[in-house]
Amino acid sequence: MRDEMGLGVRLTIASVTVAVVMVPFMLLLVVARMPLNDLDEGVARQLHAYALANPDVTTALIVWTDAFGPMSWRVAVAVLAIWLVRRGARLLALWAVTTMAVGGLLGALIKVIVDRARPGLPDPVALADGDSFPSGHALNATLGAGIILLTVMPLLRHRAAAWALAWFLVVTVACTRVALGVHYVSDVVAGVMLGVAVIAATVAGFERWRRSGASPPSAGRPAADQSSARRS
Rank of each mutant, 00 (worst) to 15 (best):
R90Q: 05
H183D: 09
W209V: 13
D187F: 06
D40G: 04
A179G: 14
Q226Y: 00
V31R: 13
D187A: 05
R86I: 11
Q46V: 01
I13G: 01
V185C: 06
T17E: 01
V182H: 05
R159H: 02
A229M: 09
A60G: 14
P222N: 03
V188F: 13
V16G: 04
K111S: 01
P154M: 03
S186L: 02
V188S: 08
G42L: 09
D38I: 06
L29V: 01
R74S: 10
A53K: 12
A223T: 00
V79E: 11
V114A: 13
M34P: 03
R231V: 10
E4M: 06
D66L: 06
I62C: 01
I82W: 06
P119Q: 11
T142N: 12
G104C: 02
D38W: 07
F206M: 12
W163S: 05
G107W: 00
T65V: 08
R10D: 10
T172K: 01
L165D: 08
R177E: 11
L29C: 07
V21M: 09
R90A: 13
D56F: 10
L155A: 15
A214C: 14
R211E: 12
S228W: 05
V192L: 10
L47K: 07
L169I: 14
R2N: 11
V43G: 09
G205C: 08
I62A: 13
G88A: 05
F68S: 08
L194I: 05
E41L: 12
S186Q: 04
A219C: 02
R74Q: 14
T98L: 10
I13N: 03
V114G: 08
R33A: 14
E41T: 09
A44E: 12
A229F: 13
V171M: 13
T58Q: 13
A164D: 00
A126K: 04
W167C: 05
F25M: 08
T142Q: 07
L169M: 15
S72M: 15
P154F: 02
M1H: 14
V30R: 15
I110A: 03
I199T: 02
A174G: 13
Y50F: 03
L92Y: 01
A145F: 06
E207C: 08
V198Q: 07
G120N: 14
T151D: 01
A96V: 00
F168K: 01
M1W: 13
Q46N: 15
G107D: 08
I199P: 09
R210C: 07
T98F: 14
P134K: 02
V198Y: 03
I148A: 03
V20D: 09
S228F: 04
A138V: 02
W163D: 08
P154D: 06
S135E: 07
C175R: 03
